[in-house]
Nucleic acid binder design. Structure first.
Lengths: 359, 359
DNA sequence: GATCTTATTCGAAACGTTTAGATTGTGTCA
DNA sequence: TGACACAATCTAAACGTTTCGAATAAGATC
């Protein structure tokens, strides 16, 4: 019987629910209100009681139940973060700093990825809202009406990163995409390239549209015609970009240079170039949106547009923190940052005049 | 006056708390218990009432409050996920698939990064436990006693990924690190290299130790002496690895090959090689743990050990899901997966016999 | 017609906090 | 000594669910 009792004890021990404020209160012979007061430091408590309660907390191993607390105070100190694809180094970096800043401010981060899928996206947002996050930081995969409805009806502050959504008036931090691509394209034009292929991201996103607009603007500025056969949609993923680049490279008027609208896609582009049997930069020049940490160690050293990921993340986190602490009803703030063209050596002048000239 | 009333209305509308079950119940003229029954499908409800309640829900725009629900049922359907560094593509990939699998199973994911910092790590775990996650998936930065205490006292199921912690007996999915590095080292030895530099990760982690053990095992197997001057600690980050490689490359008996114990570090190694004025693979051979998606497009095409990231993520997620649905008290399961050596061309035979021979 | 099932529905007590307002005790001052 | 202020503490009502057991109604059985 003793044995059985012990087993019960054991079982109870491993499965018993965690101690509550009431347990602490009873052990310290005070009311739960007083315990709450010392736990939160909300009301002054006499030194004796305070220390009695503190030792009781230690002894019992009490941890306050955040769920109950959240229910009462209506706040979870948790931020929902949704990006298109965590696997994309740009988003990875941004997520990393957002996570860091928010943690420092005492917020937890709930992460979602929509895989550039507009349906999944709505599901994910619902999941986050369902978890009662206090705020949302999102890079939308696209701007369907559903998303707008959800965001409008949910009353949590939202900040958009990387991509805007027209019709959604919230805080946002984005890049001057048009300008960045304009600069990059102008650079290629300055090298003499006239037929520049453009591998685009999804035109459902503001980044997709703005970057393409930058390309066109550069052509306009140089008084060159826009040839729509030179632009292919790669949807921001490697696979699609590979096919798109293949298309471009096997077509009649093959371009002498290619611009890739993001980091994932340039890998696909490079694979296509290799598979076709061309070499970069000897046979074809390449510039890509988004920088890589390894870009100046591995060849070809890619010329890229670097985004200020650190700043983007910091600002986004700060915007949501501000919103949640007071600045509730102020008009939305939009931050637009500048990209930076990093010239390495994935581009050659065209037509080639260097000793290496092929034809 | 009308105006004032309207403003109030307006104000109330934008700031009023979301509708509760009670609101639905009153609108449908039933009890909250019945509303709960139809929301959860827990008890049979007659068709009339069901439809009355459902339309009321639609009309009012009711969403159930998950916080209250969690408080009552004692479960949050949220998993805490902590990795050393989300910026590391290996972790990024694993996080991505874990996230995906868990979402499909209806779990949300709370993400933390400890930045390979053992103090931050404890803080992060506390944060997660404080948020009352139902389970934990973690890649520990190190195995301090504190972590063990926390995990022991918290009664949430835990699965370790990538790294073990002795003294913590939980489900885990890891790689056969020793074997993988043994194979890679054997490969380098087979090319004739005798002095192989080793850039190690932190020996606070099981991966750091096991990988190094694999290196030593390969030397042993070839009856070669272990020269501790050939191993440098790079702590899994690029910066440290750069310094470590510099050390190695400028030392008296410079190695003819270098093994890097992870992906981040190999970038540092390559930078060091470049800065010293050497070329890979012509002057020095390199192999790295962890594969890159761009490895066979950019040069030198790195020879790497690829981890089955997809499987690691899937299994880890599955282990926690299983634990949370019934399999509560079964003994811990340990999954050990195999790495795969992908031979590209960052290694040359040594001494060089090929036409390119330099000396 | 009384009793017993069976199927719905409901009332009310949790879950573990927070917090407004009531209560108590102590010291001050007339 | 009584009135009063003031601080510390407590009581009890929320927060929005879930769920157990009770209540009700309608058939079924004798």
């Amino acid at each position: 019987m003793k044995r059985f009792g012990e087993e019960m004890q054991q079982r109870r021990k491993s499965t018993r629910k965690s101690p509550t404020m009431l347990d602490v209160a009873q052990s310290a012979k005070v009311s739960v209100a007083t315990v709450s007061a010392v736990v939160n430091g909300s009301t002054p408590v006499s030194p004796e009681l305070r220390s009695r309660i503190e030792t009781a907390i230690q002894q019992i191993g009490y941890k306050r139940n955040t769920i109950a607390r959240s229910l009462k105070i209506g706040t979870t100190r948790t931020i929902g973060l949704m990006v298109a694809d965590i696997t994309n180094p740009f988003f990875t970096d941004v997520v990393s700093v957002i996570q860091d800043v928010l943690h420092r401010a005492g917020y937890a981060v709930m992460l979602c990825c929509n895989d550039e899928d507009i349906n999944l996206q709505d599901e994910q947002i619902e999941l986050l809202l369902d978890r009662m996050v206090d705020g949302l930081i999102i890079a939308p995969a696209g701007e369907d009406a559903h998303l707008k409805r959800i965001l409008a009806s949910a009353s949590v502050p939202t900040v958009l990163i990387d991509r805007l959504c027209d019709g959604i008036e919230t805080d946002a931090v984005i890049l001057d995409n048009r300008r960045a691509v304009l600069d990059a394209t102008a650079y290629m034009l300055s090298l003499g390239h006239r037929r520049i292929g453009y591998i685009s991201g999804s035109l459902e996103t503001s980044t997709g549209r703005e970057r393409l607009a930058g390309y066109r603007a550069a052509l306009d500025a140089a008084a060159l015609p826009f040839d729509e056969k030179l632009v292919q949609i790669g949807n921001f993923r490697e696979k699609d970009a590979y096919k798109a680049a293949m298309q471009l490279l096997t077509s009649a008027g093959r371009p002498s240079a290619i611009f890739s609208a993001n980091n994932l896609m340039v890998i696909g582009v490079m694979k296509a170039i290799r598979d076709i049997g061309l070499r970069c930069p000897d046979d074809i020049s390449v510039v890509s949106f988004d920088d890589f940490p390894w870009a100046d160690v591995f060849q070809p050293h890619l010329t890229t547009i670097a985004q200020p990921v650190q700043t983007i993340g910091e600002q986004a986190a700060q915007l949501i923190i501000d919103r949640l602490s007071g600045r509730g009803m102020e008009p939305p703030r939009r931050l637009m940052l500048q990209g930076r063209l990093i010239i390495r050596d994935s581009c050659r002048p065209f037509p080639l005049t260097a000793p290496h000239a092929t034809a």
